[in-house]
């Protein structure tokens, strides 16, 4: 277990390092990129940038400066201007992503701190929808295999996987906002603001989870130990709950990693459609507005997030399936 976590941490460090390095050099490599001096940007930001990134330094030194809490500045010492011009600069390794290119008064950290909780709330709601709908549909489908219910659910699942989430979102809006008037149109404020976007975001994943669950459940239900459980005189409910579901949803557990990554990605579109001021919206805007530090910050942050969640999922898997050893990961 400890060995597993240590190994994971090592690969994690390597992965994050690669992402940081690649994005840093990409940013520098593109001609006319953010650090081109002849760009017309706000003077105050320009000053921040110059102070922060030491554009006069050699590239390797700039890189180290961006990367981590290294004190490379002989003249000023460790107290350099931070994103808001006051705090000292630490570098990405200590979670400081620097000043924003677009929002003069905010550092990337400020923006993320404001928007991430919103995105995480949205993602959680979406995942909850995905699991709720996907698992129950998959289990029903498997238990009533071949019935009309099964057929309908499978059709819905196939359609759900195929449709882009913004199409789903559009239908949901038309249906629940304009026709039935159950939910607010867009924006952010209360949980009811998240229900619909969460459904639109989680929908395709619900469909995929339903499919995985159905396959997994059918596999398990055909196992001999299910027959043993019946032969022991267990009531069907107990056979399902105790003996079948756990094994049946194992494939779903390993899908949770990719699903979270997918939900984070999908939230870019959903946040835009529903005008939710989450990290996704900021990220898209940053890409459109050339707010490079913000784009980089979000990319790195989401890498960390996805990696940690994947590790968690692997741990959860071993708890659920005693046969799996953590060694080979």
């Amino acid at each position: 277990m400890l060995g597993f976590l240590l190994r994971r941490a090592l690969w994690f460090a390597i992965t994050v390092w690669i992402v940081i390095t690649v994005s840093f050099f990409l940013m520098r490599a593109v001609p006319g990129g953010p650090f081109d001096t002849d760009r017309a940007i706000d003077a105050a930001i320009e000053k921040n940038l110059a102070a922060r990134y030491h554009l006069d330094w050699p590239l390797w030194k700039q890189y180290l400066q961006y990367l981590g809490p290294f004190n490379l500045d002989e003249t000023h010492g460790a107290t350099l201007a931070g994103g808001d011009g006051s705090s000292s600069f630490g570098g990405v390794l200590v979670g400081d992503f620097g000043p924003s290119f677009k929002y003069r008064d905010f550092s990337v950290n400020d923006i993320i701190a404001q928007s991430l909780p919103i995105s995480i709330a949205l993602g959680t709601v979406a995942l909850a929808w995905a699991l709720l709908l996907g698992l129950s549909a998959g289990i029903l489908s498997a238990v009533w295999r071949g019935s009309g219910v099964d057929l309908g659910l499978r059709l819905a699942a196939t359609t759900g996987i195929a449709l882009p989430n913004f199409v789903v979102a559009l239908f949901l809006i038309v249906l629940f906002v304009f026709e039935v008037e159950l939910f607010p149109v867009a924006g952010w404020g209360s949980l009811s603001h998240l229900a619909l976007p969460g459904l639109a975001l989680g929908g395709p994943f619900a469909a995929y989870i339903a499919r995985l669950t159905r396959t997994g459940m059918l596999e398990v239900l055909s196992q001999e130990y299910i027959r043993t459980a019946h032969a022991k005189g267990l009531p069907p409910r107990l056979v399902l709950l105790r003996h079948a579901i756990r094994g049946g949803i194992l494939p779903v557990v390993s899908y949770l990693g990719p699903a979270t990554a997918g939900i984070l990605t999908g939230s870019l579109v959903i946040e835009k459609i529903f005008a939710i001021p989450g990290t996704g919206t900021h990220f898209v805007n940053s890409a459109l507005n050339r707010d490079y530090t913000l784009a980089m910050g979000v990319t790195i942050l989401y890498t960390v997030l996805v990696y940690s969640l994947n590790t968690l999922v692997d741990l959860a898997y071993t708890v659920l399936d005693p046969r799996i050893e953590l060694e080979e990961a």
Binding site: P31, L268, M296
Partner: peptide, 24 residues
């Protein structure tokens, strides 16, 4: 390693860099 990177963010990042130099 590549699997564990949320690629889309990197892609969007790269696209935004390239977009800028589109005409060139």
């Amino acid at each position: 390693i590549l699997y564990s990177i949320p690629f889309i963010f990197l892609v969007i990042f790269v696209l935004s860099l390239i977009m800028e130099r589109r005409s060139e």
